[in-house]
Design a binder for these strands. Structure first.
Lengths: 144, 144
DNA sequence: CTTGACCTTCCAGTAGGTGGAAACCCTACA
DNA sequence: TGTAGGGTTTCCACCTACTGGAAGGTCAAG
């Protein structure tokens, strides 16, 4: 293909998004359906690869596909206000902060229990006892 | 039901596990199939509720259903060594630590980008620019 | 001419449920 | 007696974000 078009495999290796995933993104309408060659193979240009790379990076930063779709439409809109992009990013940060706090609390609860378990041959185990009948909550412990 | 048996709805409200989820747990074999009354309704006793509560707590601490199944079999085994329980708990703590670190790195990357975006009417946006063409990695930034 | 690496489609499965439909059961109330 | 409501039963579909595999088409090299 000397005309700036490439196969799905080439687009995959240039963007970091696997072929299967590219087809999936097309199927769910995240990207516009690729052109087809005579043999029905999908054909991509550098612009498509750019978009795929954009998606790949947004995903690696933990944005959901829905958020990626929003980012993409902002990305393509030359007139967008940066305010809208920032709002989306800050909402994501807030969500991450929430999840991190939750996981930390859970982590500490389990680490706490594990510290009180001898961890030897004997059957007595504070961990199972707590799961069976929990003690009253202490600070930093989250049970939703 | 005066005989210590209760319906799925009652078991649900006593354990905190919704009826649908109880049926689901039965379907996947996490709990043993409930007894049935003449009318084919499921019937639970206090022991079943205890088990459901155990599951509910383990789930709220982020254990996967597979891990919960392992905890349950340890829970039911009076001869188990507390070492085995502790190992499972500590593995979970390690996994949580990994995820927390990953999320923190991602969170900081996005917060960083957002700080460099004006967030006003203008279209220029550092966030989209970074997604389009990333700068070299700096410390604390994770891109998998 | 065959081999192997691509590509195509479709179907199924992952985790952990949730929502809804259609039908049955039981009780209370008019 | 009829009915309205709340439970319960089953089954099927949907959610996220893919991934694996099967069956078949295409193409270039040896």
């Amino acid at each position: 293909m000397g005309n700036g078009l490439m196969s799905i495999g080439e687009a995959a290796s240039q963007s970091g998004v696997p072929p299967k995933t590219i087809r999936y993104y097309e199927e769910i309408g995240l990207i516009t359906p690729a052109e087809r060659l005579e043999n029905r193979y999908r054909a991509y240009d550098d612009n498509d690869v750019q978009t795929l790379r954009f998606i790949q990076r947004a995903r690696s930063l933990g944005f959901s596909l829905k958020e990626v779709a929003a980012l993409l439409s902002l990305y393509r809109d030359r007139r967008r206000a940066s305010r809208d992009v920032k709002r989306l990013a800050l909402a994501h940060v807030a969500e991450l902060d929430r999840k991190i706090a939750e996981m930390k609390a859970i982590r500490n609860t389990i680490a706490d229990l594990a510290a009180r378990c001898h961890g030897d041959q004997r059957p007595e185990c504070q961990i199972l006892e707590e799961l069976e009948t929990p003690e009253p909550l202490r600070d930093g412990i989250c049970r939703s």
